[in-house]
Design a protein around this nucleic acid. Structure first.
Lengths: 198, 198
DNA sequence: CGAGGTAGTTATCGAATGATTACCGGCAAG
DNA sequence: CTTGCCGGTAATCATTCGATAACTACCTCG
């Protein structure tokens, strides 16, 4: 396998691992095992664990902004009004949950601000999203706060593994229904599958 | 000093440490140093680091719910309408940022769901907040989503140390203005003081 | 006084983990 | 054929960190 392919594969595996256990809670060996290679190779390819984490975060943020731009452009092409355009971007955000550990990886990046290099990357990435929403998508202040807040709540509910309580607790089910909307059954099912495979 | 006093002091120090670096990123020695005692004593008093983390989380959630209940009761006593009552609880949430690491500790609890015992405590605590908002404070679904989302965004912006960019980046300043509202200068100043002391 | 409990410490151990080094097999080019 | 590089591993090192053990100073009560 070529080095570039391996690199992509490691980034993918690392996103799942880091997304679940965070920067400090994950080991390079876990990433290596998830990618099906040896631990020293992970380190050699990325230099350090911190560098790997930052590249995963950067890659995830790039994917996110790409998805947002695509959704926005499509919505504009359809001639949607402002509300519809905002909704299209929101849907794009929810649909990124199909790629393993996407939202939890973002969140883990956002709570690792105490590591200087990671904090800088996280701040820059968060601001990029904000700038896109305001300057490209034309959100106003209440819209952007509401959008980002909804996104953070979404990610936290996934990180906390709230879907495990969907069947056991009616309040949990109501909360997730209120947050995930009509994507709710889809997300609950995806989480169930993830747990079953683990 | 009595054991109960020490316990409270350690919990306080641990909240600041865990809030900044998370569960895996913090060491019992950092907590001990912050509390001015030896590392083995921290472990002996709480059994394990995990147990300490869970107790800090529980303590933080208890404080949070207490503050919410007090704010709600006061608002009811004033005869406020539903919107005012919701706002009073929101203000109570913001004001808890005066106690060191409060919001970031909550967030760190919420992203450590991969540790089984911590995840269970975090889910239960999150649901307690949800239940208070819905069943005691009478929030409807959109209100509760908006409130929780705003809270998560608030905590993430603190965790990411976004206030460090307040003066350097006008977009960062706008984002924080939109999120923190009129508490914004207060919070920026508090973060500046925290960094100066570190 | 002395016995026991309370609040702590110093010293140390063992496991985990990020990183390094040295090595190996295949394959393409000269 | 052999030289050298590319993709990759096994072995190992140096630290860090949570936990344990053993000890000490102080206070109080009979």
């Amino acid at each position: 396998m070529t080095a570039a392919e391996r690199r992509a594969q490691i980034l993918d595996a690392a996103r799942a691992v880091f997304g679940r256990r965070g920067y400090h809670g994950s080991t390079t060996d876990q990433v290596a095992k998830a990618a099906g290679i040896s631990q020293p190779y992970v380190v050699r390819m990325f230099g350090t664990k911190e560098q790997l984490f930052i590249e995963v975060l950067h890659d995830t943020l790039t994917t996110l902004l790409g998805a947002f731009r695509a959704a926005h452009a499509q919505s504009v092409a359809r001639g949607d009004d402002a509300d519809r355009r905002a909704q299209a971007i929101g849907v794009a955000y929810l649909e990124l949950s199909e790629t393993r550990g996407f939202h939890t990886m973002l969140l883990q990046g956002f709570v690792s601000g105490a590591e200087p290099a990671i904090g800088a990357a996280a701040r820059a990435g968060f601001l990029d999203i904000y700038r896109f929403l305001v300057h490209e998508a034309g959100f106003d202040d209440p819209q952007v706060s509401s959008f980002l807040g909804g996104g953070m709540l979404f990610s936290v509910l996934l990180g906390i593994e709230m879907p495990t309580l969907f069947d056991a607790d009616t309040d949990a089910a109501a909360l997730m229904q209120a947050t995930f909307g009509d994507k709710c059954p889809f997300i609950v099912e995806a989480e169930r599958a993830r747990r079953a495979s683990a």
